[in-house]
Structures are given as structure tokens and as C-alpha cells.
């Protein structure tokens, strides 16, 4: 077979990472984000970071680790590091069945409870909100559920993510078609307006959401968050090891008010992680309740 590609073309494009360097970098990422990277992903890491090393003109991973730890620009670099470590696949109304079940059961229960108590307020924490699709979807669900009554409610959706770049994007609230692949058309038309860059979330929806950059491995800042009625954390703990999963789920438990609910991603479970929550089964989802 004749080839267009020179036989000297190499598969390696990146600076080599030694096992020691990998472990140093992995531990650093773990400390700063709780994300655990298995050594099997060593080569994946090499190639993901090699461009960054070249941009910074650093000859080795050891130099990059020093840069992350001691350089005057280390805070800014941390943000770039998070961009490289996390993927942010998400869309509006991802997992419709779960959201429907959430709206019809968990949300309805909480709304009724608050009405009965005469306290028209609701705190929701969206942990790992990526570019904002999840908290905005929750805001839309509240608009759909409460309709005109919404004006009388005090609703606060606190949306946090590790990546400052994601938080910036979320605040802008402009999305391309891909974000709407699972969104019913009427929802899109009602809550978004056409914008130069795609579709922009309407201010009425955005106003319920507060974005914050936050590391879920930083227990101190988690403790400062307002107590919640509901915590959403979907497709996030999958990146954590068991210890970190336990720690984060523990923080959710502490943050929730008695009777509050934790919602996880469709394929996620507290199996083997926590037995303090009571799983409530609805068709389409499990809601984990902190018994009160």
C-alpha cells in the first residue's frame, strides 16, 4: 500500500510524562477538584496537556507542576487546568423522564409543603452546573409549575462549578443548537430569545439563578452555602473516587434541610457510598431524601 503519510510520522506528539510526574499532577488535581484520574489515562493526559506545556514554553511535566504550585500566575493556571480536566457535555432538559418525575413528585411535594407552612421560598443547589443548562432548566421547571404565583415566591438556585470559564459561559446564557437536542420546541420558544450567538436565556429565567465558582473538595466554602430544600448533582460524582464521593455526598447531606432531596444523574447511585439518605423510587428517577 503506497502511503501519503511519511513513515516517520510519529504517534507521539507530546512531551513524555513519567509515572512520578503523573502521580504528582494527579494528586494536585485531586486536591484542587476532587477529580480522580486513573493511571490508565496517563497517555490521554500527556496529549491533553502537551499543547498547554508548549504554550507556556515548559519543557517537562515536572516544570508544569512547579508552575502550578509556585508561579505568580498559578491562580489563573488553575482555571485552565480545570478546563483541561473536565468535559462538559450537557444540554437543556437532559433526561426528560427524570425531570418529569422530579417535577411531578419531588418539586410538587416541596411546593405544597412550603405553601402549607406559609413560607413561599425555595432554595435549590445545582452542584456541578457546567455551562448553566441544568440550573436554567430547573428555573424553567419552576416557571412551569408555579406560573403566575411565581412572583410571590422567593426562589434561589445556587449554581456552582469548578471551572471559572464555565461559570462565565453560564452567566452569558447563550446556547447553540446542540444544547437543545432534548428540549421540547415550545419550551425553547417560551424561555429563550434568538441572539446573534444562538439562543439567549430570558432574564426572567436567569434572575432566579446565582452562579459561583466552587471546588466541591473545599468543605469550608461548601459550609458557607445557604441550606437547601433540593440538591441537584448530576453526572459529576462519576469523576470522583469513592472517598471523594462519600465526602461530597456528606456535604450535600449537611447542607440539606430535614426532608430535603438529593437528585443524582440517571446512571448514578448512592449504592456503596451512603446509607444516610432514604431512596424514594419514582418511575424515571430515584430521589434521595434526608429524613427529617
Amino acid at each position: 500500500m503506497g502511503s501519503l503519510f511519511s513513515s516517520s510520522i510519529s504517534l507521539r506528539k507530546s512531551v513524555k510524562i513519567t509515572d512520578d510526574e503523573f502521580i504528582l499532577l494527579r494528586d494536585f488535581i485531586y486536591e484542587k477538584s476532587g477529580i480522580f484520574v486513573d493511571i490508565k489515562r496517563k497517555y490521554l493526559f500527556e496529549s491533553r496537556f502537551s499543547k498547554r506545556l508548549a504554550e507556556l514554553n515548559l519543557p517537562s511535566f515536572a516544570d508544569y507542576i512547579k508552575f502550578l504550585k509556585y508561579d505568580s500566575m498559578k491562580a489563573a493556571e488553575l482555571s485552565t487546568l480545570f478546563e483541561l480536566v473536565t468535559t462538559n457535555e450537557t444540554s437543556f432538559c437532559r433526561d426528560m423522564r427524570q425531570l418529569d418525575a422530579f417535577q411531578a413528585n419531588v418539586l410538587k411535594e416541596k411546593i405544597d409543603e412550603q405553601r402549607k407552612a406559609g413560607k413561599l421560598e425555595l432554595n435549590i443547589w445545582s452542584a456541578g452546573c457546567s455551562s448553566g443548562e441544568e440550573p436554567y432548566t430547573l428555573s424553567i421547571l419552576l416557571h412551569e409549575s408555579l406560573k403566575m404565583e411565581l412572583a410571590r415566591w422567593k426562589i434561589n438556585i445556587t449554581a456552582v462549578d469548578l471551572s471559572p470559564a464555565m461559570i462565565d459561559r453560564a452567566k452569558k446564557g447563550v446556547y447553540g443548537d446542540y444544547a437543545f437536542k432534548t428540549t421540547p420546541d415550545d419550551i425553547k420558544k417560551r424561555y429563550f430569545s434568538k441572539d446573534a450567538g444562538g439562543w439567549k436565556i430570558k432574564p426572567t429565567v436567569a434572575k432566579l439563578v446565582n452562579f459561583k465558582q466552587m471546588n466541591l473538595n473545599d468543605s469550608m466554602s461548601l459550609k458557607r452555602l445557604a441550606r437547601s430544600h433540593i440538591v441537584f448533582c448530576r453526572n459529576v460524582i462519576i469523576y470522583f473516587d469513592e472517598e471523594m464521593k462519600r465526602k461530597v455526598v456528606g456535604s450535600f447531606y449537611d447542607n440539606l434541610m430535614p426532608g430535603g432531596y438529593l437528585m443524582l444523574g440517571h446512571s448514578e447511585t448512592l449504592h456503596k457510598i451512603s446509607s444516610t439518605f432514604k431512596p424514594i423510587y419514582h418511575p424515571g428517577t430515584i430521589a434521595y431524601q434526608k429524613e427529617g
Binding site: 502511503s3 503519510f5 504517534l11 507521539r12 490508565k40 490521554l44 496529549s47
Partner: peptide
């Protein structure tokens, strides 16, 4: 498609070249 494999491992390099030609 080769991001996950050892880029210095001879059979991986060979498969990379074969895949390049097939894709071309």
C-alpha cells in the same frame, strides 16, 4: 483514536499508520 494508547509502543504506531492509510 489513539489518545488512550502508549504512543511509543511499536504495534500501536503500526496500527496508527495502517489506520491513516485506510482513512485516506
Amino acid at each position: 483514536f489513539f489518545l488512550y494508547v502508549d504512543p511509543d509502543f511499536a504495534p500501536a504506531i503500526q496500527l496508527f499508520h495502517l489506520a491513516l492509510n485506510l482513512t485516506a
